[in-house]
Each structure stands twice: as structure tokens, then as C-alpha cells.
Design a protein around this nucleic acid. Structure first.
Length: 325
DNA sequence: AAATAGCTCAACCGCCATGCT
DNA sequence: TAGCATGGCGGTTGAGCTATT
């Protein structure tokens, strides 16, 4: 990799070595070599690592491969409704600060979030024939997309909370409860489980019954053009903006390409969702003061999807308000 | 069945910031 | 202080896959 990058960022390599630099997709052997080397020697000093491990890759390539793919805690797969919502909110706040946004989605890489944004969000902007950075599109996200996401999240949580009641009475220790409701798989984990909230500060005992995460399987994902392999990122159901502006907006619903398809004043949404035109977290979350890893820790190797839940979001809102008082 | 279009995402590129000597 | 090495970040690309015609 790094044709020019190899020259600019890896002067340890001789020109002869440069000629041998590999680029393109990583092989299984290369992956194993990198994994074993990092396991033994740790991360960092990527150029030295590449040389010492005998990888004919630049340090940059090794670093990227490790961070975006091989790292044990990296999550790939369904981007949950909650994650989508958070991405939208954080992007509205920070713009294309992908790495910053990624800090608040544990296990997600900036690259994955960036890809999500470009493939899903920008696609809808394109469909609307407006710029993704335009006020019009931002309003669409704020007034339509995000409220609908919240509604869906809440609906999911409400439905699954009912399912959880019986499970929570069974035991307070590790349990995994699965059910099949409307073709969605629901999973419940306790505080020590592999998924779900782990920080007691956000674990209101009264809400135990809501510690539910919903797992969308690829087959019930709404994204028709998802990759075929198990590593491909899938986006949870209801990620399609088209549904939002066709359902929510009063009048002119059918013309999704219309440049003036709605006015904010036309939008009405329930009391239970967005409360401010400025977005889901109207007064600004103090994300900087939060530990990105604390409330939503998730251990590696768990392919389940949603480790956010409505309580998490409400917690965020609460903290937001507290921080602004 | 073949061709084409569209989509996804891993990987690359280039720039910048930081730390070290 | 200058020069270099390294890490990090955001933008972009293109191979591979799926869906459609």
C-alpha cells in the first residue's frame, strides 16, 4: 500500500524494500503475522513493527489494518438504530470529525462511521437533490429522521421490555434471554453480561427490565445492498430516510425529490421524542466530559448489535441538561 | 444467463500535528 | 530551532458483491 505514502512516511525502508511493498487486500497469513506480533510486542512503532514482523507493508498499513479490522474489540456489522441516531446527532455537532464521533461508539471505527455516512446519509441527500451540508438536509435529519429513529428505538424498547419482565424475574445473575418477536431477535443481558450497559452510573435498577438490546439479523436489515459476507456492515432496520420523509411529512409526501418537500412548521412529532428544533439533545451534550467507553462498554467478539438503549439516550439527555445548569 | 448499474467497505492518499533528537 | 519519524485524521478510490434489466 501507500505508494506515495511509502515514500513519505516510511523512510526506514530502502528503495529496494519499497519495490517489494505489498498493497491491496491483506492475506490471512499477513493478518496472523500482525496479530501475533502485536500480541507479543504490543501496538505502536508501526514502521518498526512492519519490518520486525517481516510484513512487506508500511507501518501505516499495519496500523490501519490493526485498528480497523484486527483489533479484538472492533465491531463490524449492524449499525444499530441507536448508533445511527448517535452518529446523526454527533455529526450535526461536530461535522466530519469521524474519529471523535467514533470515540462514542465503542468498537466502531472512524472508517466505518465515515462509510456509513457516505453510503447511507449522503445517498439520501443525493436523492433529495440537496447538499448533505445544507440547512435543508440538516433540518430533515433533525425534524424527521432523528425523531423517527427515537420513536423506533422507544417502540423497540417498549416491546422488548415486556419480553424482558419474565426474564428479569428468573435470575439476577448472568442470563441470556432470547425471543423471536416480529422476526427480530431480542437479547437481554445483565450488568456483567457481554453486552449492555456496564456502568452502574447509568444502570438504574428501576430500568432493569429495559436492559434490552435488539439484534437485527442481516436478513431483516432494510438495507438491500449489503455485503454478502459476514463481515459486511449491515445497518439496522429503518435506516432508510425515504421512509421518514414519506411517512412523517404532511403534504407533498410522495415527491421525495422535491426541493421544497416540507417546511419545518409542517412537522409534528410526539411528545415522547424530539423536544427541540435543535435536535435530539437540544442543549448540547457535554461529550467531552464523558468517558466514551464507560457507559457502553462491550466486550470483543460479540456479534450482537445494539448495546445502546433508550435509557442510555435518556441518560445522555439528562447529563446534557445537568451540564448546562 | 449475461450485462449493467449501484452499493459497500477495506485500503490508500495526502496532509497535518506531535514528539524526539 | 530545524529536521525527521511517527501517528492520526479526513477524503478518496476501486475491487467485489448484489440487484436489476
Amino acid at each position: 500500500m501507500d505508494g506515495k505514502g511509502a515514500r513519505s512516511s516510511n523512510t526506514l525502508l530502502s528503495s529496494e524494500d519499497e519495490m517489494d511493498l505489498r498493497r491491496g487486500p491483506w492475506t490471512v497469513d499477513e493478518d496472523l503475522t500482525l496479530i501475533n506480533y502485536v500480541a507479543t510486542h504490543g501496538e505502536g512503532r508501526w514502521n518498526t513493527l512492519a519490518l520486525s514482523a517481516g510484513l512487506k507493508r508500511t507501518g501505516k498499513s499495519c496500523r490501519l489494518r490493526w485498528l480497523n479490522y484486527l483489533r479484538p474489540d472492533v465491531r463490524r456489522g449492524n449499525i444499530t438504530l441507536e448508533e445511527q441516531l448517535l452518529i446523526l446527532e454527533l455529526h450535526s455537532r461536530w461535522g466530519n470529525r469521524w474519529s471523535k464521533i467514533a470515540q462514542y461508539l465503542p468498537g466502531r471505527t472512524d472508517n466505518e462511521i465515515k462509510n456509513y455516512w457516505r453510503t447511507r446519509v449522503q445517498k439520501h441527500a443525493k436523492q433529495l437533490k440537496c447538499d448533505v451540508n445544507s440547512k435543508q438536509f440538516k433540518d430533515t435529519m433533525r425534524y424527521i429522521w432523528m425523531p423517527r429513529l427515537v420513536e423506533r428505538i422507544q417502540a423497540t424498547a417498549a416491546a422488548s421490555a415486556t419480553t424482558t419482565v419474565t426474564a428479569t424475574t428468573a435470575t439476577n445473575n448472568a442470563y441470556t434471554y432470547g425471543s423471536n418477536l416480529n422476526n427480530n431477535k431480542f437479547e437481554v443481558h445483565d450488568h456483567k453480561g457481554k453486552m449492555g450497559l456496564t456502568d452502574p452510573s447509568v444502570m438504574n435498577n428501576d430500568l432493569v427490565g429495559s436492559h434490552v438490546t435488539q439484534s437485527y439479523t442481516p436478513e431483516n436489515s432494510s438495507t438491500g445492498a449489503s455485503s454478502s459476507d459476514s463481515f459486511g456492515t449491515q445497518v439496522s432496520a429503518i435506516s432508510d430516510l425515504t421512509e421518514y420523509y414519506t411517512v412523517t411529512v404532511s403534504g407533498n409526501n410522495n415527491n421525495t425529490n422535491s426541493a421544497d418537500y416540507y417546511q419545518p412548521s409542517q412537522i409534528s412529532y410526539s411528545d415522547s421524542c424530539i423536544t427541540s428544533p435543535s435536535g435530539l439533545f437540544p442543549q448540547g451534550l457535554d461529550f467531552q466530559s464523558m468517558d466514551p467507553n464507560t457507559p457502553w462498554n462491550m466486550q470483543s467478539g460479540d456479534s450482537s448489535d445494539s448495546f445502546w438503549n433508550v435509557e442510555s439516550m435518556l441518560f445522555l439527555e439528562q447529563q446534557l441538561m445537568n451540564d448546562n445548569m
